[in-house]
Design a protein around this nucleic acid. Structure first.
Lengths: 194, 194
DNA sequence: CCGACACTAGACAGACCTGTCTGCTAACGT
DNA sequence: ACGTTAGCAGACAGGTCTGTCTAGTGTCGG
């Protein structure tokens, strides 16, 4: 009946505002005041919901991890062979890097500046462990010998692709990484299944 | 005659202090006051020498570029064959990543946060162009076909190695990158000089 | 009707930020 | 002897930061 349709909770609006601002301008550069202004929320609500800016940052990073996870898993569904699925991780990254507003890895960006509480470090470790595990699983599916070691190399490629797309915008670095991964994959599976 | 030996200039001490603090804690997190305190310099001297914090940041990044350049070129002198020299860039990075206090790429770290003046972007672009040019030269020496394209791939590996060593400390990522580069190099030079 | 709850608006404290300004000291070249 | 240059010490202005606190509003279950 009132003008506004049933408004989302303060928590949701805060998370959305934090996601946009923190990713675009950096966790450190964006103050609480700008987050609550964009969210249309009172400062007291932020502190009663999250307790501190650190915990808001943690929630922001967890949301980034979750949406990244969902995007990658959904993006891989279109591929069928194990080889395509493995290389598809780089295809998904290339698509994302081609979109406007891409600013690289939220976790690395956040951990580039001081992190006294260790919140950023914790969340960055968690998301990196997930990425590495994903690559290791895909390696196993693809029949790569020593999948853990190969996953380490793929993580290097993935990191390089992300940084490259951040500093030289566009999908070139992810596509270069995809090409390297393909050569590596051929080299390592050539003898095992000719 | 006085207690102090002929002291280095305010500029030198400021640059040294800025280098240590900015690299360890981030350009944004470290305030002017801490820089001048560590340098033992008056605030007015900083502003008469550099004009603004932005220009101090620029000088810091240029110093980083110069010392990195010198370190790499000196480190490559021990290698003789073109192949070893190309892969040696990753050896030098691995050595550096193994040292305590390594915190990744000063340029990427600085550009992760807001950069309204564009100073960081300018210096980051310059140093990345140098790196890419170095790789291209080494590719030409090694007789790699299409050295520019191969240099692009090596930059991806180099970026990935740097990020990996930052977030998972130690020389593992640079050594993995070296391994990948070796495989790529073999794949691309196999047909040209068997 | 009433009490619990979620929320808003905004003042405030105390710290820290960049940048400017005033005054002072000392070495050095001419 | 004197002006220039380099530098030191520190107050100050005006802004932003996180986090706390007071006070009021509206809604909903019982």
């Amino acid at each position: 009946m009132s003008v506004a349709s049933p408004r989302r909770s303060a928590r949701e609006r805060l998370l959305e505002a934090a996601d946009e601002l923190f990713y675009a301008e950096g966790v450190h550069s964006v103050g609480i005041d700008r987050v609550i202004e964009r969210a249309g929320v009172a400062k007291a609500s932020l502190y009663s919901t999250f307790g501190s800016k650190d915990e808001l940052v943690r929630a922001y990073l967890r949301g980034r991890h979750e949406s990244r996870r969902a995007r990658i898993l959904a993006g891989l569904e279109r591929f069928t062979t194990p080889r395509e699925r493995l290389l598809g991780v780089f295809d998904v990254l290339a698509e994302r890097a081609a979109q406007p507003g891409f600013r690289g890895c939220a976790f690395y960006n956040a951990s580039a500046e001081r992190d006294p509480s260790g919140v950023v470090r914790e969340e960055a470790d968690a998301t990196r462990a997930w990425t590495r595990g994903l690559f290791a699983d895909l390696c196993r599916e693809a029949g790569v010998p020593d999948p853990e070691a190969f996953a380490d190399r793929l993580v290097v490629l993935y990191d390089g692709a992300t940084v490259g797309a951040r500093l030289d915008p566009g999908p070139r670095a992810p596509l270069a990484a995809r090409g390297i991964a393909a050569v590596m994959l051929d080299a390592v599976t050539a003898g095992s299944a000719p």
